[in-house]
Amino acid sequence: MIVNSIKKWALPIFTFIIFLFIWQCVIIFGHYAPILLPGPFLVLKSIGHFIITGDIFTHLGISLYRFIAGFVLAVIIGVPVGFLLGRSSSLFNAIEPLFQLIRPISPIAWAPFVVLWFGIGSLPAIAIIFIAAFFPIVFNTIKGIKHIDPQYLKIASNLNMKNWSLYKNILFPGAFKHIMGGIHMAVGTSWIFLVSGEMIGAQSGLGFLIVDSRNMLNLEDVLAAIFFIGIFGFLIDRIISYFEKLILTRFGE
Rank of each mutant, 00 (worst) to 15 (best):
S213H: 07
S213C: 08
S213A: 15
S213R: 06
S213I: 14
R214I: 11
R214N: 11
R214A: 11
N215Y: 07
N215A: 11
N215K: 09
M216I: 12
M216V: 10
L217E: 07
L217C: 02
L217S: 04
L217W: 05
L217P: 00
N218Q: 15
L219Y: 14
L219V: 11
L219Q: 05
L219W: 12
L219H: 10
L219E: 00
E220T: 05
E220C: 09
E220P: 05
E220M: 10
E220I: 11
D221N: 15
D221Y: 14
D221W: 14
D221G: 14
D221Q: 15
V222M: 00
V222S: 00
V222T: 04
L223Y: 03
L223D: 06
A224L: 02
A224Y: 00
A224T: 01
A224W: 04
A224D: 01
A225N: 02
A225K: 02
A225D: 02
A225T: 14
I226N: 07
I226C: 10
I226A: 09
I226P: 04
F227H: 03
F227T: 14
F227C: 13
F227Y: 06
F228M: 02
F228H: 03
F228I: 08
F228W: 06
I229W: 07
G230K: 01
G230L: 01
G230F: 00
G230W: 02
I231M: 11
I231E: 03
I231S: 06
I231N: 09
I231P: 06
F232H: 08
F232V: 13
F232N: 08
F232T: 06
G233R: 00
G233I: 03
G233S: 01
F234W: 15
F234S: 10
F234K: 15
L235Y: 05
L235K: 07
L235W: 03
I236F: 03
I236P: 09
I236D: 01
I236Q: 07
I236C: 08
I236N: 08
D237M: 09
R238M: 08
R238N: 05
I239N: 03
I239D: 07
I240G: 04
I240T: 02
I240P: 04
S241F: 04
S241Y: 04
S241L: 12
S241R: 08
S241D: 13
Y242N: 00
Y242R: 09
Y242Q: 07
Y242C: 07
Y242W: 15
F243T: 07
F243H: 08
F243L: 09
F243S: 08
F243W: 08
F243R: 05
F243Y: 14
F243D: 10
E244T: 02
E244I: 00
E244Y: 02
E244D: 07
K245G: 10
L246F: 13
L246V: 14
L246H: 12
L246D: 10
L246P: 11
L246E: 13
I247H: 09
I247M: 11
I247G: 11
L248T: 13
L248D: 03
L248G: 12
T249F: 09
T249S: 13
T249L: 13
R250S: 14
R250P: 08
R250H: 14
F251W: 12
F251G: 12
F251A: 11
G252V: 05
G252Q: 01
G252I: 05
G252A: 06
